[in-house]
C-alpha cells in the first residue's frame, strides 16, 4: 500500500516536471509549426548554466533564473527572427526539424568543448531532504521543481488569457492571416512566442538540474518522451501538454511497480501510437495537428 502511495506521489511530481519541460515545445509548434528538436538541448544548456552559476557564486541555482530566463528569451527571439523566419513557409515544419537538429548538435558540441563530457551535478544541502505526507516521502528538490512548473505554467496561462500580448499570440496561433488583417504584427508576436518557449526551457533546465546528473548528450534521452507528450496532448495546446504530461508521468511511475523500468518506459511510445491511431490530432489539441 505504501509503495502505491509513494509511487503516486512520485508520479505527480514527475508529471509536473514533464509538463514544464514540454510546455515550450508545444508553444513553438502552436505559434509557428516549428518542430523544435533543440528544445531539450536548451534544457541541458540551462542546467549547465545553473551548475556553472552555483560553482562560481556559491548561491542557490534557483537564483540563476534571474539571468537565464531573460537570456533564453532573447536567444529565442533572435533565433526566430534570424534563422527560423528565413525558412520557406511551405516547407517550414520539415525544414525546422533539420535546422533545430543542427542547433542541438551545436549546443551539445559547445557544452562538451567548454565543460567536457564529464557528468555534472549540483550539490545541494537539501538534495536528499524530504518530509512525510500520508506515509509517502516527498523530496524537497522534487517539490521545488514541481513548484517551478506550477508557477511558470500558471504564469504562461495568465499571459495567454489575460494580456493583450496573449490575445495577439493566440490570434497568431489560430489564424495568422486574419491576425495580420486586424493589425497584429505577427512576425514580432511569433518572435516573442518563440522567446517565451525558450524561457520555459531556462526554468525547466534549472528544475532538471536540481535533481539529476547531466552531461552534454543527455538531451537525446529527453526529446523522445517530450515529443510523445505534446503529440498525446495535442500539438500547440499548453493545457493539453500539461495534462498529458501528468497522465504519462503518473502512468510511468505506477506501471513501474508491476512491469519494471524497461517496460514502463515504453508506455510513452505506446501512448504515442495509440494517439496517432485513434485521435491523431491529440486528446486536447484542436485542428492544428491535423495540418501537420
Amino acid at each position: 500500500m505504501s509503495l502505491l502511495v509513494q509511487s503516486l506521489v512520485l508520479g505527480v511530481l514527475l508529471g509536473g516536471l514533464y509538463a514544464l519541460l514540454a510546455a515550450g515545445l508545444t508553444l513553438y509548434f502552436g505559434v509557428m509549426r516549428v518542430v523544435m528538436i533543440a528544445h531539450s538541448a536548451f534544457l541541458i544548456l540551462a542546467a549547465y548554466l545553473a551548475w556553472w552559476f552555483t560553482n562560481q557564486t556559491g548561491l542557490d541555482p534557483l537564483f540563476s533564473l534571474v539571468l537565464t530566463v531573460p537570456l533564453f528569451f532573447g536567444m529565442g527571439v533572435f533565433m526566430q527572427r534570424v534563422l527560423i523566419s528565413r525558412l520557406r513557409p511551405a516547407t517550414l515544419t520539415m525544414m525546422s526539424v533539420l535546422l533545430t537538429f543542427s542547433i542541438a548538435l551545436v549546443i551539445e558540441g559547445m557544452l562538451g568543448f567548454v565543460f567536457s563530457g564529464t557528468q555534472r551535478r549540483i550539490r545541494l544541502d537539501y538534495g536528499g531532504a524530504s518530509f512525510e505526507v500520508l506515509g509517502a516521502n516527498v523530496a524537497v528538490v522534487k517539490l521545488i521543481a514541481f513548484g517551478l512548473a506550477v508557477v511558470s505554467l500558471g504564469a504562461l496561462f495568465l499571459l495567454m488569457k489575460k494580456t493583450q500580448f496573449g490575445q495577439s499570440l493566440r490570434a497568431t496561433i489560430q489564424h495568422p492571416d486574419a491576425a495580420r488583417l486586424i493589425g497584429i504584427n505577427t512576425d514580432r508576436v511569433a518572435g516573442y512566442g518563440f522567446g517565451l518557449g525558450l524561457a520555459t526551457a531556462a526554468v525547466g533546465g534549472t528544475a532538471l538540474a536540481l535533481d539529476s546528473t547531466f552531461y552534454p548528450s543527455l538531451h537525446w534521452h529527453w526529446i523522445g518522451p517530450l515529443m510523445a507528450i505534446i503529440v498525446v496532448g495535442g500539438l500547440g495546446s499548453i493545457p493539453g501538454a500539461a495534462i498529458a504530461a501528468m497522465v504519462l508521468g503518473m502512468g510511468q511511475a505506477l506501471l513501474q511497480i508491476p512491469l519494471g523500468t524497461t517496460w514502463a518506459q515504453t508506455f510513452f511510445y505506446v501512448a504515442l501510437f495509440v494517439t496517432l491511431m485513434v485521435r491523431p490530432q491529440g486528446f486536447f489539441g484542436g485542428r492544428l495537428a491535423q495540418r501537420f
Partner: peptide, 20 residues
Amino acid sequence: DEVYPPNTTDFGSIAAKIAD
C-alpha cells in the same frame, strides 16, 4: 531485482521499490 535501460533518467520509482 530491477534492471533498467542505460538511458534511464528518473530513479524515483526504482528507489521507491527498494525503499519499500
